[in-house]
Design a protein around this nucleic acid. Structure first.
Lengths: 144, 144
DNA sequence: TCTAATAATTAGTTTGACTAACTAATTAAG
DNA sequence: CTTAATTAGTTAGTCAAACTAATTATTAGA
Protein backbone atom coordinates (compact mmCIF):
# COMPACT_ATOMS: atom_id res chain seq x y z
CA UNK A 1 0.00 0.00 0.00
CA UNK A 2 1.26 3.46 -0.83
CA UNK A 3 2.19 5.66 2.10
CA UNK A 4 1.65 9.40 2.00
CA UNK A 5 4.33 10.87 -0.25
CA UNK A 6 3.94 14.60 -1.01
CA UNK A 7 6.62 14.70 -3.70
CA UNK A 8 5.02 11.76 -5.50
CA UNK A 9 1.60 13.34 -5.32
CA UNK A 10 2.92 16.58 -6.76
CA UNK A 11 4.80 14.64 -9.45
CA UNK A 12 1.56 12.93 -10.44
CA UNK A 13 -0.46 16.15 -10.49
CA UNK A 14 2.18 18.06 -12.43
CA UNK A 15 2.60 15.21 -14.90
CA UNK A 16 -1.12 15.13 -15.68
CA UNK A 17 -1.35 18.92 -15.82
CA UNK A 18 1.49 19.20 -18.37
CA UNK A 19 -0.06 16.53 -20.56
CA UNK A 20 -3.44 18.25 -20.60
CA UNK A 21 -2.06 21.72 -21.21
CA UNK A 22 0.00 20.56 -24.19
CA UNK A 23 -2.78 18.43 -25.60
CA UNK A 24 -5.00 21.49 -25.55
CA UNK A 25 -2.45 23.93 -26.92
CA UNK A 26 -1.50 21.66 -29.82
CA UNK A 27 -4.97 21.94 -31.26
CA UNK A 28 -3.80 25.35 -32.52
CA UNK A 29 -1.10 23.76 -34.71
CA UNK A 30 -3.54 22.72 -37.41
CA UNK A 31 -3.76 26.27 -38.73
CA UNK A 32 -0.15 26.33 -39.94
CA UNK A 33 -0.20 22.96 -41.68
CA UNK A 34 3.10 22.22 -39.94
CA UNK A 35 3.51 18.94 -38.05
CA UNK A 36 4.79 18.99 -34.48
CA UNK A 37 8.28 17.71 -35.40
CA UNK A 38 8.62 20.32 -38.16
CA UNK A 39 7.46 23.15 -35.92
CA UNK A 40 9.83 21.97 -33.22
CA UNK A 41 12.86 21.70 -35.51
CA UNK A 42 12.10 25.13 -36.91
CA UNK A 43 11.94 26.44 -33.35
CA UNK A 44 15.42 25.15 -32.57
CA UNK A 45 16.76 26.84 -35.70
CA UNK A 46 14.94 30.11 -35.03
CA UNK A 47 16.18 30.40 -31.46
CA UNK A 48 19.52 28.63 -31.83
CA UNK A 49 20.49 30.08 -35.20
CA UNK A 50 21.89 28.15 -38.18
CA UNK A 51 23.53 24.85 -37.30
CA UNK A 52 24.58 21.57 -38.88
CA UNK A 53 22.40 18.48 -39.05
CA UNK A 54 24.07 16.53 -36.26
CA UNK A 55 23.58 19.32 -33.76
CA UNK A 56 19.97 19.79 -34.79
CA UNK A 57 19.33 16.06 -34.50
CA UNK A 58 20.80 16.04 -30.99
CA UNK A 59 18.73 19.05 -29.97
CA UNK A 60 15.60 17.24 -31.11
CA UNK A 61 16.71 13.92 -29.65
CA UNK A 62 16.36 12.02 -32.90
CA UNK A 63 18.88 10.18 -35.07
CA UNK A 64 20.59 11.88 -37.99
CA UNK A 65 18.68 9.96 -40.69
CA UNK A 66 15.41 11.08 -39.12
CA UNK A 67 16.56 14.69 -39.09
CA UNK A 68 18.03 14.41 -42.58
CA UNK A 69 14.58 13.44 -43.92
CA UNK A 70 12.79 16.11 -41.89
CA UNK A 71 15.18 18.83 -43.04
CA UNK A 72 14.84 17.58 -46.63
CA UNK A 73 11.08 17.98 -46.38
CA UNK A 74 11.37 21.43 -44.81
CA UNK A 75 13.76 22.39 -47.60
CA UNK A 76 11.33 21.14 -50.26
CA UNK A 77 8.69 23.39 -48.69
CA UNK A 78 11.10 26.33 -48.81
CA UNK A 79 11.15 26.74 -45.03
CA UNK A 80 14.86 26.07 -44.50
CA UNK A 81 17.93 26.27 -46.74
CA UNK A 82 21.03 24.10 -46.73
CA UNK A 83 24.40 25.67 -47.45
CA UNK A 84 27.80 24.05 -47.63
CA UNK A 85 29.87 24.48 -44.52
CA UNK A 86 33.12 26.11 -45.62
CA UNK A 87 35.02 24.89 -42.59
CA UNK A 88 33.95 21.25 -42.89
CA UNK A 89 33.06 20.04 -46.36
CA UNK A 90 31.19 17.03 -44.95
CA UNK A 91 28.74 19.27 -43.15
CA UNK A 92 25.73 21.34 -44.13
CA UNK A 93 24.65 24.57 -42.52
CA UNK A 94 20.88 24.59 -42.08
CA UNK A 95 19.18 27.94 -41.79
CA UNK A 96 15.61 29.17 -41.65
CA UNK A 97 14.37 31.09 -44.70
CA UNK A 98 12.24 34.22 -44.43
CA UNK A 99 9.24 32.11 -45.40
CA UNK A 100 10.11 29.58 -42.69
CA UNK A 101 10.48 32.29 -40.08
CA UNK A 102 7.11 33.80 -41.01
CA UNK A 103 5.34 30.44 -40.84
CA UNK A 104 7.02 29.57 -37.56
CA UNK A 105 6.00 32.88 -36.06
CA UNK A 106 2.42 32.28 -37.17
CA UNK A 107 2.38 28.79 -35.62
CA UNK A 108 3.91 29.95 -32.39
CA UNK A 109 1.49 32.85 -32.25
CA UNK A 110 -1.48 30.51 -32.76
CA UNK A 111 -0.37 28.26 -29.90
CA UNK A 112 0.34 31.07 -27.51
CA UNK A 113 -2.76 33.03 -28.43
CA UNK A 114 -4.91 30.04 -27.55
CA UNK A 115 -3.23 29.65 -24.15
CA UNK A 116 -3.12 33.39 -23.59
CA UNK A 117 -6.89 33.56 -24.06
CA UNK A 118 -7.40 31.13 -21.21
CA UNK A 119 -4.84 32.76 -18.94
CA UNK A 120 -6.31 36.21 -19.51
CA UNK A 121 -9.48 35.04 -17.78
CA UNK A 122 -7.61 34.21 -14.57
CA UNK A 123 -7.25 36.73 -11.77
CA UNK A 124 -3.86 38.43 -11.83
CA UNK A 125 -2.58 36.62 -8.71
CA UNK A 126 -3.27 33.21 -10.16
CA UNK A 127 -1.55 34.12 -13.39
CA UNK A 128 1.46 35.26 -11.42
CA UNK A 129 1.46 31.96 -9.56
CA UNK A 130 1.64 30.19 -12.89
CA UNK A 131 4.49 32.42 -14.02
CA UNK A 132 6.46 31.50 -10.92
CA UNK A 133 5.56 27.83 -11.33
CA UNK A 134 6.78 27.83 -14.92
CA UNK A 135 10.16 29.11 -13.79
CA UNK A 136 10.30 26.39 -11.14
CA UNK A 137 9.34 23.75 -13.69
CA UNK A 138 12.19 24.77 -15.95
CA UNK A 139 14.59 24.32 -13.04
CA UNK A 140 13.09 20.93 -12.22
CA UNK A 141 13.35 19.78 -15.85
CA UNK A 142 16.95 20.92 -16.09
CA UNK A 143 18.04 19.44 -12.74
CA UNK A 144 20.75 16.77 -12.98
CA UNK B 1 6.48 45.71 -32.03
CA UNK B 2 4.94 43.70 -29.21
CA UNK B 3 3.58 45.65 -26.27
CA UNK B 4 3.83 44.28 -22.74
CA UNK B 5 1.30 41.46 -22.42
CA UNK B 6 1.46 39.56 -19.11
CA UNK B 7 -0.90 36.78 -20.17
CA UNK B 8 1.11 36.15 -23.33
CA UNK B 9 4.36 36.07 -21.39
CA UNK B 10 2.95 33.57 -18.94
CA UNK B 11 1.53 31.52 -21.82
CA UNK B 12 4.99 31.37 -23.38
CA UNK B 13 6.71 30.45 -20.13
CA UNK B 14 4.15 27.79 -19.24
CA UNK B 15 4.21 26.33 -22.75
CA UNK B 16 7.99 25.91 -22.67
CA UNK B 17 7.94 24.56 -19.13
CA UNK B 18 5.38 21.85 -19.96
CA UNK B 19 7.35 20.77 -23.01
CA UNK B 20 10.55 20.43 -21.05
CA UNK B 21 9.00 18.62 -18.12
CA UNK B 22 7.36 16.02 -20.35
CA UNK B 23 10.43 15.58 -22.52
CA UNK B 24 12.40 14.82 -19.38
CA UNK B 25 9.85 12.52 -17.79
CA UNK B 26 9.38 10.44 -20.94
CA UNK B 27 12.97 9.24 -20.78
CA UNK B 28 11.71 6.88 -18.06
CA UNK B 29 9.37 5.04 -20.45
CA UNK B 30 12.12 2.96 -22.02
CA UNK B 31 12.27 0.64 -19.01
CA UNK B 32 8.82 -0.86 -19.56
CA UNK B 33 9.08 -1.48 -23.27
CA UNK B 34 5.63 0.11 -23.58
CA UNK B 35 5.16 2.88 -26.14
CA UNK B 36 3.59 6.17 -25.09
CA UNK B 37 0.23 5.44 -26.79
CA UNK B 38 0.02 2.00 -25.17
CA UNK B 39 0.91 3.35 -21.73
CA UNK B 40 -1.63 6.10 -22.16
CA UNK B 41 -4.47 3.80 -23.28
CA UNK B 42 -3.70 1.45 -20.40
CA UNK B 43 -3.86 4.43 -18.08
CA UNK B 44 -7.36 5.33 -19.22
CA UNK B 45 -8.48 1.75 -18.63
CA UNK B 46 -6.82 1.48 -15.23
CA UNK B 47 -8.33 4.70 -13.90
CA UNK B 48 -11.58 4.68 -15.86
CA UNK B 49 -12.33 0.98 -15.54
CA UNK B 50 -13.41 -1.35 -18.37
CA UNK B 51 -15.05 0.43 -21.30
CA UNK B 52 -15.92 -0.08 -24.93
CA UNK B 53 -13.67 0.85 -27.82
CA UNK B 54 -15.46 4.00 -28.86
CA UNK B 55 -15.22 5.54 -25.43
CA UNK B 56 -11.54 4.62 -25.16
CA UNK B 57 -10.83 6.11 -28.58
CA UNK B 58 -12.55 9.37 -27.60
CA UNK B 59 -10.64 9.53 -24.33
CA UNK B 60 -7.39 9.21 -26.26
CA UNK B 61 -8.55 11.54 -29.03
CA UNK B 62 -7.89 9.05 -31.80
CA UNK B 63 -10.21 7.41 -34.34
CA UNK B 64 -11.78 4.03 -33.69
CA UNK B 65 -9.64 2.15 -36.26
CA UNK B 66 -6.50 3.52 -34.57
CA UNK B 67 -7.74 2.35 -31.19
CA UNK B 68 -8.95 -0.96 -32.62
CA UNK B 69 -5.41 -1.71 -33.80
CA UNK B 70 -3.81 -0.51 -30.56
CA UNK B 71 -6.15 -2.61 -28.42
CA UNK B 72 -5.52 -5.58 -30.74
CA UNK B 73 -1.79 -5.23 -30.11
CA UNK B 74 -2.27 -4.85 -26.36
CA UNK B 75 -4.47 -7.95 -26.43
CA UNK B 76 -1.82 -9.91 -28.35
CA UNK B 77 0.63 -8.97 -25.62
CA UNK B 78 -1.80 -10.15 -22.97
CA UNK B 79 -2.16 -6.71 -21.38
CA UNK B 80 -5.89 -6.24 -22.02
CA UNK B 81 -8.79 -8.61 -22.65
CA UNK B 82 -11.86 -8.13 -24.80
CA UNK B 83 -15.21 -9.47 -23.68
CA UNK B 84 -18.54 -9.38 -25.43
CA UNK B 85 -20.92 -6.73 -24.12
CA UNK B 86 -24.11 -8.53 -23.10
CA UNK B 87 -26.24 -5.40 -23.29
CA UNK B 88 -25.11 -4.35 -26.75
CA UNK B 89 -24.00 -7.15 -29.01
CA UNK B 90 -22.18 -4.72 -31.29
CA UNK B 91 -19.85 -3.68 -28.52
CA UNK B 92 -16.79 -5.08 -26.75
CA UNK B 93 -15.80 -4.51 -23.17
CA UNK B 94 -12.07 -3.86 -22.88
CA UNK B 95 -10.45 -4.53 -19.55
CA UNK B 96 -6.91 -4.55 -18.22
CA UNK B 97 -5.47 -7.95 -17.29
CA UNK B 98 -3.42 -8.53 -14.14
CA UNK B 99 -0.31 -8.58 -16.32
CA UNK B 100 -1.34 -5.29 -17.93
CA UNK B 101 -1.99 -3.69 -14.57
CA UNK B 102 1.42 -4.77 -13.28
CA UNK B 103 3.24 -3.45 -16.34
CA UNK B 104 1.29 -0.21 -16.25
CA UNK B 105 2.11 0.29 -12.60
CA UNK B 106 5.79 -0.26 -13.36
CA UNK B 107 5.73 2.27 -16.20
CA UNK B 108 3.84 4.84 -14.22
CA UNK B 109 6.15 4.32 -11.26
CA UNK B 110 9.21 4.86 -13.47
CA UNK B 111 7.86 8.16 -14.80
CA UNK B 112 6.72 9.47 -11.48
CA UNK B 113 9.79 8.28 -9.60
CA UNK B 114 11.98 10.26 -11.95
CA UNK B 115 9.95 13.42 -11.43
CA UNK B 116 9.48 12.75 -7.73
CA UNK B 117 13.26 12.58 -7.30
CA UNK B 118 13.62 16.10 -8.63
CA UNK B 119 10.67 17.48 -6.67
CA UNK B 120 11.93 15.96 -3.44
CA UNK B 121 14.96 18.23 -3.64
CA UNK B 122 12.81 21.37 -3.64
CA UNK B 123 11.93 23.17 -0.41
CA UNK B 124 8.46 22.27 0.80
CA UNK B 125 6.99 25.70 -0.06
CA UNK B 126 8.08 25.47 -3.67
CA UNK B 127 6.68 21.99 -4.00
CA UNK B 128 3.38 23.24 -2.64
CA UNK B 129 3.43 26.08 -5.17
CA UNK B 130 3.76 23.48 -7.90
CA UNK B 131 0.89 21.46 -6.47
CA UNK B 132 -1.34 24.55 -6.57
CA UNK B 133 -0.11 25.41 -10.06
CA UNK B 134 -0.93 21.91 -11.31
CA UNK B 135 -4.51 22.32 -10.13
CA UNK B 136 -4.71 25.68 -11.88
CA UNK B 137 -3.29 24.20 -15.06
CA UNK B 138 -5.96 21.53 -15.10
CA UNK B 139 -8.59 24.25 -14.89
CA UNK B 140 -6.93 26.22 -17.68
CA UNK B 141 -6.70 23.12 -19.90
CA UNK B 142 -10.34 22.29 -19.32
CA UNK B 143 -11.64 25.86 -19.79
CA UNK B 144 -14.04 26.33 -22.70
C1' DT C 1 50.31 8.15 -45.11
C1' DC C 2 47.03 5.11 -43.97
C1' DT C 3 43.40 4.36 -40.89
C1' DA C 4 39.87 5.51 -37.64
C1' DA C 5 36.31 8.65 -36.72
C1' DT C 6 32.70 11.91 -38.16
C1' DA C 7 28.83 14.18 -41.23
C1' DA C 8 25.35 13.27 -43.98
C1' DT C 9 22.63 10.42 -46.86
C1' DT C 10 20.21 6.23 -48.67
C1' DA C 11 17.63 1.94 -48.06
C1' DG C 12 14.52 -0.64 -45.59
C1' DT C 13 11.59 -1.56 -41.41
C1' DT C 14 8.22 -0.53 -37.67
C1' DT C 15 4.69 2.07 -35.25
C1' DG C 16 0.84 4.75 -34.91
C1' DA C 17 -1.95 7.96 -37.09
C1' DC C 18 -5.48 8.63 -40.85
C1' DT C 19 -9.59 7.63 -44.45
C1' DA C 20 -12.56 4.52 -46.92
C1' DA C 21 -15.25 0.71 -47.01
C1' DC C 22 -17.26 -2.99 -44.88
C1' DT C 23 -20.30 -6.25 -41.46
C1' DA C 24 -23.33 -6.62 -37.65
C1' DA C 25 -26.48 -4.79 -34.44
C1' DT C 26 -29.56 -1.22 -32.68
C1' DT C 27 -32.94 2.52 -32.99
C1' DA C 28 -36.42 5.30 -35.29
C1' DA C 29 -40.21 6.06 -38.78
C1' DG C 30 -43.75 4.99 -41.54
C1' DC D 1 -43.32 -4.82 -38.69
C1' DT D 2 -40.48 -3.78 -42.15
C1' DT D 3 -37.33 -0.35 -43.85
C1' DA D 4 -34.10 3.42 -43.17
C1' DA D 5 -30.65 5.47 -40.57
C1' DT D 6 -27.30 5.24 -37.14
C1' DT D 7 -23.74 3.21 -34.22
C1' DA D 8 -19.84 -0.25 -32.92
C1' DG D 9 -16.15 -2.38 -34.48
C1' DT D 10 -12.96 -4.30 -37.97
C1' DT D 11 -10.06 -4.60 -42.20
C1' DA D 12 -7.29 -2.66 -45.89
C1' DG D 13 -4.42 0.70 -47.53
C1' DT D 14 -1.72 5.07 -47.05
C1' DC D 15 1.30 8.30 -44.76
C1' DA D 16 4.59 10.51 -41.47
C1' DA D 17 8.13 9.91 -38.45
C1' DA D 18 10.84 7.14 -35.84
C1' DC D 19 14.54 3.47 -35.95
C1' DT D 20 18.97 0.49 -37.66
C1' DA D 21 22.35 -0.75 -41.06
C1' DA D 22 25.09 0.41 -44.71
C1' DT D 23 27.35 3.92 -47.99
C1' DT D 24 29.96 8.02 -49.39
C1' DA D 25 32.81 11.90 -48.50
C1' DT D 26 35.81 14.22 -45.60
C1' DT D 27 38.66 15.07 -41.58
C1' DA D 28 42.00 14.08 -38.19
C1' DG D 29 45.26 11.19 -35.63
C1' DA D 30 49.05 7.57 -34.83
Amino acid sequence: MSRYDPALEVADALHSACIRILRRVRTADEETGLSAPKLSALSVLVFGGPMNLTRLARAEQVTSPTMSKLVGDLEAEGLVAKRADREDKRGVRIEVTAKGKALFDAGRRARLTLLRGKLAKLPKEEREKLRAAAALMLRVAAAD
